[in-house]
Design a protein around this nucleic acid. Sequence first.
RNA 1: GGUCUGUUAGCUCAGCUGGAUAGAGUACUUGCCUCCGAAGCAAGGGGUCACAGGUUCGAAUCCUGUACAGACCGCCA
Length: 581
Amino acid sequence: MNLFTDIRALVIGALETMTKEGDLPAGLNFDNVTVEPPRNPSHGDMATNAAMVLAKPAGQKPRYIAEKLIGILSLNGEIVSVEIAGPGFLNIRIIPYVWQSLVKTVILSGGAYGTSVMGAGKKVNVEYVSANPTGPLHVGHTRGAVFGDALAGLLDYAGYEVTREYYVNDGGSQVDVLARSVYLRYLEAHGQEVAFEDGTYPGDYLIPLGQALKKEVGNAYLDQDEQIWLVKIREYATEAMMGMIRDDLALLGVSMDSFFSEKSLYGTGAIEAAIDNLRAKKLIYEGVLDPPKGKKPEDWEPREQTLFKSSDHGDDVDRPIMKSDGSWTYFAPDIAYHADKVNRGYDLLINIFGADHGGYVKRMKAAVSALSEGKVSLEIKLTQLVKLFKDGEPFKMSKRTGTFVTLRDVVDQVGADVTRFVMLTRKNDAPLDFDFNKVLEQSRENPVYYVQYAHARGRSVQRRAVEAGISVDIATLAAADLSRLSHDAELGVIRRLAEWPRLIEIAARTNEPHRVAFYLYELASELHALWNKGNEEPTLRFLQVDDPDTSQAKIALLQAVCVVISAGLGILGVKPAEEMR
RNA sequence: GGUCUGUUAGCUCAGCUGGAUAGAGUACUUGCCUCCGAAGCAAGGGGUCACAGGUUCGAAUCCUGUACAGACCGCCA
């Protein structure tokens, strides 16, 4: 149910009629013909660019096409008027009944209104967070988590079959570092003095692990060589870290469908198989890379390495997959991991990376392109930094001392709903300022409350209506006489509701969930405006105590707004408020 | 040196597949509370869409170049 595509179908139908009657040459491509809401409401309900885009390919003047089109469209009973305007736009006005009926559609469809078939039958894998299991999630991860989760929700709404996946980097050397750091805490638990040198994790969060380890193994690991305890502690620590990370994600309301372990790729032949796959395509060779230009490579030595010919698939240079000591680089398991995704039959892969990983975009795309022979596309979305503030002052973090702001800190202070919404009020690739105090202000500067308030107002009126003995169940509202919704402000809200399905498709196509947040803000704004008009014009109030029929029509509109706000917040992972406290 | 991202109102930012007079919030001025609490609404001023070319009926949007900002650039993931 999308009014704009409905009207577009009418326009296309008219164009086909014109083709049949010889007013347009056969075989024209109508793909560029759009029907959109005009920016200026005085231009009417909808506008189409048909006459302008077809003028050239048809070899006709825009005006000629426009007039023929008007002749056909005017015959339709749902269309009030069609006018030529500006450089050749057709402004279309449709009968109020069409708008009013939309309210009923929305109410009856509920959370299904605006869902799309654009993703029907398509499987998509969204990989996000994928933080190393070496510590708690921090703010940067939080943004990636929120963005990825909202994008997954959006694609789900748009009809895709979505898998939310976390890649656990538990196979590289960073988990060895973790193990050694835990060992130090273990020694500390036994009363020894320890020093955290460079290349260890000094964070306090490992203290309990050291103590727990002491409780479990006693002094078995004291004065023991690393090879005795490393594997055991590594396993123990990664498991504990992943447990902590899952808890952090749960705090934020993020729940993954799948955790994929890097370690599971080792010793199973998975990496070798993926590399052999590329080798069979003649994309693996031994070679020497040029030194990176620009900065002085002080310790640069030319070395022969095993390389992936990623430059054949759009990368700038070829990339090493094996270190000089014969072990894999991190890139090799990444290739194997994505080979696994390709083999699982996804039509589309999406990875969410922090902006500092921007340099890996091309090689990952090259790998997927090569592995799938161009059949599966990999989209990589980068999330920019989060700059923390408190009362307008920058909030300093230091990795070295281990004093960084964690996801838990943020959620504990401001709550999951606020965190999620605020993080989606910027495009993913733009830096985000996050002020701990500002986001908690319950003011108009805070979009979370603004949207929540609109929903709460809607619910409040419904509760009042019930108290006044007016029935507001869905069936009653759907059967209300919607022709009573004739005021411009009311139709304005409906017009905004009509844009919802269109917005979902745009947001899903561009992979930009922030558009949902901005839309909800606009919808809330329409509702607040209508609400306040009720102060001056009592007939515009939703609740007309002595006129149940009118009340029900108006509350039906309110219900429709609540449905869309609720669905939109649902995509973003935010719970709608029944009332404000 | 190269790659990627960004540059829109004083400030923070939206802007759809290229569409009509480029929009919000904030700040400033001024009004408005019996439908939840004004946590809201209305009105006003504020712009060379970084700059220069190009593509076309039409460019903030696409292409090329320049300037500025950030991220990244072989054995860390």
